[in-house]
Simulated scan of single mutants.
Amino acid sequence: MKLGLQIPDFTWPNGASALGADLAAVVRAGDQAGFDSIAVMDHFFQIGAVGPVENDMLEAYTTLGFIAAHTERAKLLTVVTGVLYRHPGLLAKAVTTLDVLSGGRAILGIGAGWNEEESRGLGFPFPSVAERFELLEENLQYVLQMWTDGDAPFKSKHFDAGRLLNVPQALQKPRPLIMIGGGGEKKTLKLVAKYADACNLFNGPDLERKLDVLRQHCENEGRDYDSITKTVYHILDVGENGEKSDELLAELERLNGLGIQVALGMVPHVHRPAVLEKFATEVVPAAEKLV
Rank of each mutant, 00 (worst) to 15 (best):
Y225D: 09
N220I: 12
W114R: 08
S156L: 08
K190W: 07
P153S: 07
Q141R: 15
F44A: 08
D197R: 05
V267R: 03
E251H: 10
T148M: 02
K187G: 01
D149G: 10
V291K: 14
A39I: 05
N200V: 00
E54T: 13
T97W: 07
S227V: 00
Y195T: 00
M179C: 13
E288R: 15
V284Q: 09
S128W: 01
R163M: 12
L191W: 07
V53R: 15
K2A: 11
K230W: 08
Q32M: 06
A193D: 01
A263G: 07
G111A: 13
E208M: 05
Q216L: 13
P88W: 06
L58C: 09
A60N: 05
K187V: 15
H70K: 12
G4I: 06
G34Q: 08
F44S: 03
G48A: 13
A280R: 15
A286H: 08
E118Q: 11
A280P: 04
V267G: 07
L165E: 06
A21Q: 13
P205S: 15
P125D: 11
D149R: 10
A263D: 00
D160N: 14
N139C: 14
M179K: 03
L136Y: 00
K155I: 12
G150C: 10
A280T: 01
L122S: 08
